[in-house]
Amino acid sequence: MNLTLRVWRQAGPAAAGQFVEYPVRDISTEMSFLEMLDVVNEQLTEQGDAPIAFDHDCREGICGMCSLMIDGVAHGPMQATTTCQLHMRSFRDGDSITVEPWRAQAFPVLRDLCVDRTAFDRIVQAGGFVSITTGNAPDGNAIAIPKPDADAAMDAAACIGCGACVAACPNGSASLFTAAKISHLGHLPQGQPERYRRALRMVAQMDLETFGGCTLFGECQAACPKEISIDTIARMNRDYIFGAAFEQEESRAGGAG
């Protein structure tokens, strides 16, 4: 099939960008969207033009590296699917497709369609972990975890950190990402000791990174390739409220030393 692509081109973080149109011919419906871009890039290279920079790695929907706002929808029209898993059979011959990078203050464009998502890592640094060190863990079966809890934790833990939630949110909010991690650990006994502290710190970091707030539009949930539910956000808020009210200030005297 033949398509027209309207792609955001931007030479570098500080450069001005603009849309450029590319006619694309003879695309197979079996191709993935990224394979279609590969074809375009090979052609651009052969013509002596700069290929379109876009992030990708695993190409099987798990690493979270690929992105792309495709015709105004994060990861394109197919539900629960990353761009690398989106196939051209979702489009029709003659379509004109607009391709943009994720847009958010906290996700500056690096080049063309690549953005900097390190803000997510810093949110995790603020508390998205269990503070244990290697080698002092009790037996894996020492604490029984009810299956529903383990399953709920897994549902939230499925987040791949791609940033589609931010991209799709009219507010540019990272609430779903942050809430998914808080829910994952909050559902497990291992996550309890730091549960409220984690919520306080991760939310504070999320705000510092200049993400927007949550209006519960639901767009994040619809865009999420792992179908993470906005129920996690309710949980995050609950933990936050509880923490804000009851979490003890850290003792100035510190720990045992």
Partner: peptide, 18 residues
Amino acid sequence: RNRAARPVPYAKRTPQVS
């Protein structure tokens, strides 16, 4: 805050469920 979080708007945005 929400406006500031997305200074450059999308050329095309198609709301899904909101």
